[in-house]
Design a protein around this nucleic acid. Structure first.
Lengths: 253, 253
DNA sequence: CGCGTATTTGAATGAGGTCAAACTGAGTGG
DNA sequence: CCACTCAGTTTGACCTCATTCAAATACGCG
């Protein structure tokens, strides 16, 4: 449970009982090869999943094959809390590296969240953060140049892998993503991504010996106009009394 | 409370007590001129707001003035449930027409949601829908041509205004948005939006006598490749027993 | 009327796309 | 160990969709 606990504890310290509640909600753990569909568009989801190891993507595809990567999933990420609504998935999730995925019984998961405030609080933070990432993605794709988009995405992934407990302290995040994936995430062509990355390499911003690495974080931030505020890295626990006046959830039923 | 109730009841029928709980949570109602900032990036939010009348936008701005509209807000939309976390807003909200906005005490609002399952369920649906809209926005901006983006956005707004109880039964949604706003939403220049809309008008898809109106919904859908599934228009209530096994929320504190 | 804002149209420019070919590197099988 | 394959990357040449700049036009509104 390392990645998941690690993630939740980024937002709030979990008590021992809280941890065991979560552990008890686990349904199973599976391994997947790269390029495996974890959720297909149209699926009705009965479970909640957590990515424990590896990288995955959320994606949507158009009729004619055009593909848009909505977001990258890194260890500790949850998909999908919105499984609670019994509605077909409006997008797909697919592994891009070998992955370890844990699944939870929805009801048990909700029990755990509902009975422990720190869990609920952390889950809410995770949701807020994911939405913020989607919004920033819109800005990248809508209003940034190619080099800005790429630099910005690299920095976001570096921050996120740091939270996930991967990646090194400074610069050196190693991102296992291809030019084609970057292109599909940023609304560019693979060819242009390649060209732009070559430029960035020549500028000394990054290195690309097999995986992408950050060499000059400061300059990269400046190229991207990157402000990591939207990631809420300084997440503080919700005020502990936020729900305290609340009656039991079942009161209204 | 028309727009808000109307919206919530799109997802689940509200009981009379549920309605009055919501009504009691209202803090105040205010009117705003167009181009008024409702939330400024960096604000810490103490309230939850509902747009009762008029249109607004969520937006982010880059240092050099480039602007990205993340989403349009129509009557019945909530901003922001994420106010629960006491964190500075990572984006702004601004009126684009005269607006009526209702604000809620966060605690009272949570009380209402926590004590009534239908309210909670509807709020969750609204959150899921908003996230889906953000994802679709990424696809538009990342992978669609100018005419596809515009047609797609028009159709989304038409569907959403229909939920909001505005707009007419078929085609005729009247959208009070300018070329410049469309451009900032879709990552285009106002000039090109103007050109493209001219083309669409000549194709008989839309009319633009002061407000934008849909003339030929079917062709527009085909031009946009529009599949309204992501809007979850067929929202059904959450399974009523979803939370029923749950212990009181305070149990873990 | 006169001012500010939005829209339209034209002409020139440019960022990024497409097509195509060469190159790299990690398997994999002979 | 080498040949072969397959996926990813790089580079060049050309093209196109959308941007920019600029000027003209329309539209409230005081």
């Amino acid at each position: 449970m390392d990645a998941f606990f690690n993630r939740l504890e980024h937002y709030a310290r979990l008590s021992a009982p809280a941890r065991s509640r979560i552990e008890n909600a686990v349904h199973q753990t599976r391994h997947y090869q790269p390029r495996t569909a974890l959720i297909r568009q149209g699926d009705r989801l009965g479970r909640i999943f957590v990515l424990e190891q590896g990288w995955a993507i959320r994606k949507k595809e158009l009729e004619d094959g055009r593909r848009q990567i909505l977001n990258f999933l890194v260890p500790g990420d949850i998909f999908d809390l919105q499984a609670l609504i019994n509605s077909p998935a409006d997008h797909g999730v697919e592994t891009i590296t070998p992955c370890q995925v844990r699944s939870f019984e929805t009801a048990a998961f909700i029990d755990a969240a509902g009975t422990d405030f720190t869990i609920l609080s952390s889950l809410w933070w995770a949701t807020v953060q994911e939405e913020a990432i989607l919004r920033e993605q819109i800005v990248r794709v809508g209003r940034m140049t190619a080099i800005e988009r790429i630099a910005h995405l690299i920095l976001e992934l570096q921050r996120r892998t740091r939270i996930a407990g991967l990646g090194h302290a400074r610069g050196g995040a190693a991102l296992p993503i291809t030019r084609g994936q970057i292109a599909d995430a940023l609304g560019l062509s693979p060819v242009h991504v390649s060209r732009t990355i070559t430029v960035m390499r020549r500028m000394g911003l990054i290195a690309t010996d097999h995986v992408l690495e950050i060499l000059d974080p400061e300059s990269l931030v400046s190229v991207a106009g990157f402000d990591d505020h939207y990631l809420h890295l300084d997440a503080s626990p919700l005020p502990a009394d936020l729900f305290s006046r609340q009656k039991p959830m079942t009161a209204g039923l």
